[in-house]
Amino acid sequence: MADIRRRAAVLGSPIAHSLSPVLHRAAYAELGLDDWSYDRFEVDEAALPGFVEALDPAWAGLSLTMPLKRAVIPLLDGISPTAASVEAVNTVVFTEDGRRVGDNTDIPGMIAALRERGVEKVESAAILGAGATASSALAALAVICAGPVTAYVRSKERGDEMRGWGQRLGVDVRVADWADGGRALDAPLVIATTPAGTTDALATGVPERPGILFDVLYEPWPTPLAAGWSARGGAVVGGLDLLVHQALLQVEQMTGLSPAPLAAMRRAGEAALAGR
């Protein structure tokens, strides 16, 4: 085994479930980066500053998951316009001159995953949920959605947040009650951003001729909603698609090599999920 020259890792809490090491290591193997390592570390918001300060020059970058995507911003020297648009960073690159630069690859990852399935533009869309992933979905829809986006939320506060993100991103956001979530399924594009189990009750209400479903979950897969959607002949984009595309962009930024090996990364992710 080659001596490790460059390091990267994913941080978050909880982190044991993360597929990021599988995807990044598959990319390194395909790119011949035998002296690169990619690990996972359980790090919460309180521990993050100390972890970052302790990193040595061997570190090329970090991937960040919840709850660190906003907590990391004060520790950085700069962030990209994409990250600034949703105030969330999932990627940190350490530059040769020692700067820490943050980016958000979730947003272009969503767009790339949809375009891979032939989705270039939609006239309207629906979002199920109103958390951090929903704001990234709104940013993606700012690029590919020509008309209004209806967000199905559980509280007035969440609805106000989504309207605020819409104003900031230039998206016409309309808010609806979660209890009416079944109506979302008639939209040309539905993006489900909620935790596992939350949309299960909607699975029996998939329309006869569904449009496109983007379900950001990848485990368990398929979700009941995704399975019901496929059974009706609808197109489904899954969480693994998003994970692979956002990781691909991270690999390219951290290593400086492009293109990253999309097919190899997807195969590794599929194999890892099949083995769980």
Rank of each mutant, 00 (worst) to 15 (best):
V119S: 12
T105S: 10
L55R: 03
N90E: 08
A139M: 02
A140Y: 06
S80L: 06
L169I: 10
G78I: 02
V52A: 07
T65F: 02
L169S: 07
V93K: 07
S136P: 12
T91C: 03
K121I: 08
W178Q: 09
A83Y: 06
A176M: 04
G166W: 01
V119M: 11
R163H: 07
R115N: 05
L62H: 04
F94M: 02
A83N: 01
A132E: 12
A125L: 09
E120I: 00
T105L: 05
A58K: 12
V122D: 08
V101D: 00
M66T: 13
L48Y: 05
A137S: 13
D106V: 11
A113L: 09
A132T: 13
E123I: 00
R70A: 14
P148L: 10
V175C: 11
A139W: 00
G50Q: 12
V175G: 08
I111T: 13
L169C: 05
L141P: 04
D180R: 14
V173I: 07
S155G: 10
P148C: 05
W59L: 10
P81W: 09
I107A: 13
E87T: 14
M66I: 14
F51S: 02
G61M: 07
S124L: 10
P57H: 12
A83R: 01
V101N: 01
D106H: 10
V143W: 10
G61Y: 00
V175K: 05
A47N: 03
V153M: 03
D103A: 12
E116I: 02
G159E: 06
E53W: 09
M110A: 08
R163A: 11
G50N: 12
T91A: 03
V86W: 08
I79L: 10
S155Y: 00
V149Q: 02
E53D: 15
A126K: 05
A134I: 09
V92A: 08
K156Q: 14
L75P: 00
D56W: 11
L62S: 07
T133V: 13
Y152V: 06
I107S: 08
L76S: 07
Q167S: 15
I79E: 07
A179Y: 03
C145F: 06
R163N: 00
T65G: 07
E116M: 10
L138V: 04
A58T: 15
V93A: 11
V72L: 08
T150W: 03
R168M: 01
I73T: 05
V93N: 08
S136I: 03
A88G: 04
S135T: 15
L48C: 09
A179W: 05
T91K: 11
W165P: 01
D77R: 11
